[in-house]
Amino acid sequence: MRTSPGGRVAAAGGVALRLLVAGLFLLPLLWVASASLRAPGLPPPRGVEWIPDPVSLDAWSRLLTLAPVGRALVLSVVVAAIVVPVTILVSSLAGFAIGRMGAPARRTLLGLAVVLLLVPAPALWLTRFLLYRTAGIIDTPLVLLLPAAFGLSPVFVLLYAWGFRRVPTELIEQARMDGAGPFRAWWSVAFPLVLPTTVAVGVLAFVATWGDAVTPLLYLRSDELTTLPLAIRTLQTLDRSDWPILMAGALLLALPAIALFGIAQRRFLADDRIAETFGRRG
């Protein structure tokens, strides 16, 4: 079958289809990258200019002087390094727990998660501000970290709830028979089996934290507490002739998220890896 002409055509078609998808979705990134290599301060190009003339790194060097990129980058990395693991911890614990509940409690909790999911972000802008102010934590790093306490988004809890339901109950029961407590069963038995969910939640949580410009805008005020998306946002007011700098900033903001997923999908979402994970439970 492997050598049949039809199979080969289908395989070649498959490769072509994947490359087409890749090309289409890569287009915006390429445009941003090439636009960031145009010298700032020139009249904006008419239409698109794939290879700027001259190719220049001025936008990148001016980016570093215009926005407090260095300091903002450090803070953003620290925040992500804290928020992502805590989010995984909180939402996977909650997701696991929901799976262990009896049907009525489980349904109520899933329903609650869906209702929380329906709360639009603008509903929180002002009133959360009032709560933070009452708690006296406006302009402290806590406002960047607190969202992790509720798992950033109920979606993650729901994803874990579905993920853990796929873990055969016998495995958990066996751990229980072996004398493991629920935390141990979660950590040693269930958590490793939902690796793909953890990867997805981790990547999504990273993106949500990494790109969030509203939280720092509303709840922080000190310069020292500028995060990267907010620093990049200041570039938005640049004149059109200086958009290469904005593009450089956007690329700088996008690259870590792209790299993270590139590594994650290669390491964790490859087939052999999954087979290994599932093989382990035998």
């Binding site: 620290v78 390094a81 804290i82 693991p85 805590v86 911890l89 934590i137 402290t140 790093p141 806590l142 970290l145 992790a148 000190s222 020292e224």
Partner: peptide, 13 residues
């Protein structure tokens, strides 16, 4: 995770 939890309780400026 433990480090993260500690950082959550870090002192405020």
């Amino acid at each position: 995770l433990v480090l993260a939890a500690l950082a959550l309780a870090a002192p405020l400026p």
